[in-house]
Design a binder for these strands. Structure first.
Lengths: 117, 117
DNA sequence: TTCCGAAGTTCGTAAATTATGAACTATAGA
DNA sequence: TCTATAGTTCATAATTTACGAACTTCGGAA
């Protein structure tokens, strides 16, 4: 297996971050990791919003998040511990991640309200 | 020609915005419009960062921005007047656009510094 | 040790997106 | 009415993404 690639924070790009977070599955994964506040394994997310994601697809999504610089993955025994790189990104692009996450949360809140109209 | 489609602000999604702005050409267009502070035509952007963009491609990029809800386009004679929908989006997703634009500007600033290292 | 199962990755191919040239539409002005 | 300009649409090539099947690793039995 190839070693994991993590871009240095200076190589992280805005377009990479936006692209990674423009996919609802990856966003669900990322938000889940942020909410958990601690390392998460891939298999934690096999089920995303009522939909079962094939593990090969899930693996690619984690790779996208990793290569965009959003998360850090470390092999630990047979599984993978994933943590967010929020702090580094906050330093490089202040306010970016929190604005995106707030927007997603606002959208989710609105959607759930909607069905009760 | 088909009439132009503009989503209502309530149908604008975060993923749509992030996807639209994860492309460097579209971002350059959008930032250009914001900087100009007034309506811009498509042809203003035929040249984006040293690269000539075919007009069919440019047309698609404008469509993507329009359908994501980022801009409003109105036919005016033979040309198209494009304006941003910043204010509406700011209301729906406070801070999102300004954080993204600030991040892009920070990145551009760093890149131009870089060559002078 | 050797074997087995769990967790992920990689590869090949199908499906979906995107880019772009060529042809077309609409409008202003001569 | 003719022509040039600004932009759109369409067809197709190129790129990206999804996912099943096969593979790799590691941990824990037996």
């Amino acid at each position: 297996m190839k070693p994991l690639v993590h871009p240095s924070i200076d190589d992280v790009t805005v377009e990479g971050i936006l692209h990674a977070l423009s996919d609802p599955v990856r966003t669900a994964i990322y938000l889940g990791m942020v909410d958990a506040g601690c390392a998460q394994t891939c298999s934690t997310f096999q089920q995303v919003s009522d939909r079962a994601i094939p593990k090969s697809t899930l693996s690619q999504h984690f790779r996208t998040l990793r290569e965009a610089g959003l998360i850090r993955s470390e092999r630990q025994g047979v599984e993978m511990r994933n943590t967010t790189r929020c702090a580094e990104i906050e330093q490089r692009f202040p306010g970016l991640l929190s604005a995106i996450m707030a927007a997603y949360r606002a959208q989710a809140a609105k959607e759930s309200t909607h069905s009760a109209d």
